[in-house]
């Protein structure tokens, strides 16, 4: 009963934070409330007994999205809050309430039967090479999804690098600098543990990659890790390696399949599946971490780069 009370409080808090983030008059307040909302979402995932999602959400939803929105906020000019008239607020609210009623009615009519995929996944878990069902689904049963997701990440990074103007140079203060240095080894240790633990318990490439990215963003914002930029050849290689290692592993698995009767793309041979999954996950973790980091911090201002190249000549 007390747990139900906790759930009710959490749900109420989520709704209030979301509403306040939408309705707040200052955009800054909206962004800050959204970050708090992301943290509460991580708590909700933990309450729903999905620790995989809680780990990813805590790093992505609250950390990276918050950093992204703040840097977007820094680029915007401050302007007066826009005041909407009553009809402008009322009609969307009526429409949304109608939608909400429809959605709730539809949800309560869903048949309460489990998806047939659950039994299939459980039965095939022995042949998947890992013992954690979520990792088995991500990297064995539905590895197409994961491969294409890595492609989507790569495309998003390429697109963002094309269109985004150079980031403004920011200053860091001593406390955040020393704190980020203290945090860095712990982040690396935790990410390594998450990657390794993913085979048998909650954890895996996404969570480890998101955590590494969060740590790298903090260091990068404090002007550490200056080699971590798109113009560095090795960084580009590692970012592409997420997709390429996946494809190469799939080709290797096709070659190693002994019975030539049915060679299927992206099917690991059962006795080697564990090794394949670990290999793919290792490169996916590095690629996800670097891609997310570059998506958030972007490239430094062109002037700063030019100064470094030309040995400190005066530039605009």
């Amino acid at each position: 009963m007390s747990l139900l009370l906790f759930d009710a409080t959490l749900c109420l808090l989520l709704l209030v934070l979301a509403l306040a983030s939408i309705l707040s008059r200052q955009l800054v307040h909206g962004v800050i409330l959204y970050i708090a909302f992301g943290l509460m979402m991580a708590l909700a995932w933990a309450r729903l007994a999905t620790p995989d999602l809680a780990l990813a959400e805590a790093a992505i939803g609250a950390g990276l999205t918050g950093a992204l929105c703040f840097s977007a906020l820094a680029r915007q000019q401050l302007h007066l809050p826009v005041v909407l008239s009553w009809p402008q607020r009322l009609w969307p609210a009526v429409f949304v309430l109608l939608m909400l009623g429809g959605v709730l009615a539809a949800l309560l009519q869903l048949p309460p039967t489990a998806s047939p995929l659950v039994d299939v996944a459980q039965a095939e878990l022995i042949n998947s090479g890992v013992s954690h069902p979520v990792t088995a689904v991500l990297l064995n049963f539905r590895s197409w999804d994961t491969l294409l997701e890595l492609v989507v990440l790569l495309l998003a990074l390429l697109g963002a690098l094309q269109v985004a103007p150079a980031a403004k140079a920011t200053t860091s203060w001593p406390l955040s600098l020393s704190w980020s240095r203290l945090l860095a080894p712990m982040v690396i240790l935790l990410a390594g543990y998450l990657l390794w633990a993913g085979a048998s318990q909650p954890g895996g490439a996404f969570q480890a990659g998101a955590l590494l990215a969060a740590g790298a963003v903090v260091l990068r914002l404090n002007h550490q890790l200056n080699w971590l930029r798109w113009s560095n050849f090795w960084i580009r290689l590692l970012i592409v390696s997420g997709v390429s290692a996946f494809v190469l592993a799939a080709l290797l698995a096709m070659l190693l399949t002994t019975d030539n009767t049915d060679v299927i793309w992206l099917r690991w041979p059962p006795q080697l599946a564990g090794g394949f999954i670990l290999l793919v996950e290792l490169f996916a973790t590095l690629a996800i971490a670097l891609t997310l980091t570059l998506l958030v911090v972007g490239e430094p201002a062109a002037a700063e780069q030019a100064q470094q190249n030309s040995g400190g000549e005066a530039h605009d």
Partner: peptide, 9 residues
């Protein structure tokens, strides 16, 4: 899990 990463990108 896939959706979370795609959403942030």
């Amino acid at each position: 899990l896939t959706g979370l990463v795609v959403a942030v990108s």
